[in-house]
């Protein structure tokens, strides 16, 4: 039985792939949204930090024999610490300047990091063994267990982050500081520390995404660049700084991309950008923006 002339196998298969891509989009745009909301920094290093997560996981495995499950914890922590140092010594100095300075500084960091990895390890992908081999026949397609794990953990992380921000005391500090950080500081809250930790959290989330991606996509210096362009489109569609917007549009755009692959494969790579232009024309500040 066909659906609009397309076999259900193909349709469901592509939707599932879209969901997996969407999991990465959601995790990465979530981190970007958290960072932008509090710091007004467009973190162009986000893709490089995602790549570093995958790369550190590969280094841990090949150099130190640390397995995937260890890397899943260690790599994000290491990259988050790197991020916090970056915030403390570079981004903090730019906080009173135009947003453009933060964007340029993080872009420079991304280029340097990618250049160093490229110089040291070349541009061809480094293989990373799938830690959960095998899969299950769903009837319409074979679903590798690892991809199921990625979708599940991404959902848990996104929901957990949303709850943290919307439902906890710490989250209320963050939301208030998004609106007016100087007033939050005037209540005695250590806002500089909050900013450092928030940046570390966003960067750690990107690195965790990178570790999750390592067994699916090959580990290469450019893996972040490819991802970040799409993720920025996701953030623009969801509304800069909107947490729910980042999550929902991340998954939605992954699925939209999957659907395009079925019905118009040639257009798959530009679907997200076409939607971005459309969204910008209709809702310039994003679907989930509170600014309107």
């Amino acid at each position: 039985m066909d659906i609009f002339g397309v076999s259900p196998q193909l349709l469901l298969g592509q939707l599932l792939l879209g969901l997996i891509n969407g999991s990465f989009y959601a995790m990465l745009s979530l981190g970007l949204a958290v960072i932008f909301g509090l710091m007004n920094v467009v973190n162009f290093a986000h893709g490089a930090q995602y790549m570093l997560g995958a790369f550190v996981a590969w280094l841990l495995l090949t150099m130190f024999g640390v397995p995937y499950w260890g890397a899943l914890v260690i790599a994000p922590v290491v990259i988050a610490l790197f991020g916090m140092a970056l915030e403390r010594f570079l981004l903090r100095r730019l906080q009173n300047e135009d947003h453009l300075f933060g964007l340029l500084a993080t872009y420079a960091v991304a280029l340097i990091v990618e250049g160093l990895v490229l110089h040291g390890y070349g541009s061809s992908g480094l293989p990373y063994t799938n830690p959960i081999p095998g899969g299950v026949m769903l009837g319409f397609m074979f679903l590798p267990y690892y991809r199921l794990w990625v979708v599940a953990i991404s959902l848990v992380l996104c929901l957990g982050t949303w709850l943290l921000i919307e439902r906890t005391k710490l989250g209320s500090y963050l939301r208030a500081a998004n609106e007016r950080s100087e007033l939050v500081e005037a209540f005695g809250i250590n806002v500089p520390k909050l900013v450092t930790l928030t940046y570390g959290f966003g960067v750690g989330l990107a690195a965790l995404g990178g570790v999750l991606a390592a067994p699916i996509y090959s580990v290469s210096p450019s893996m972040g660049t490819n991802m970040i362009v799409v993720v920025f489109a996701v953030v623009v569609i969801g509304g800069m700084g909107s947490i729910a917007g980042a999550i929902v549009s991340g998954y939605a755009l992954g699925l939209a991309e999957g659907l395009t692959k079925v019905f118009y494969p040639a257009g798959a790579n530009m679907t997200i950008f076409a939607l971005m232009i459309l969204a910008l024309m209709i809702w310039p500040s994003g679907l989930f923006s509170k600014a309107q």
């Binding site: 007016r180 100087e182 209540f187 806002v191 500089p192 509170k290």
Partner: peptide, 22 residues
């Protein structure tokens, strides 16, 4: 600012500073 506040100061700004997202 946060260190000054912690000495025991309470600040009520001119525009009231009520947070819309809270």
């Amino acid at each position: 600012t946060y260190q000054i506040a912690r000495l025991g100061l309470g600040f009520c700004p001119e525009d009231r500073g009520i947070f819309a997202s809270l």
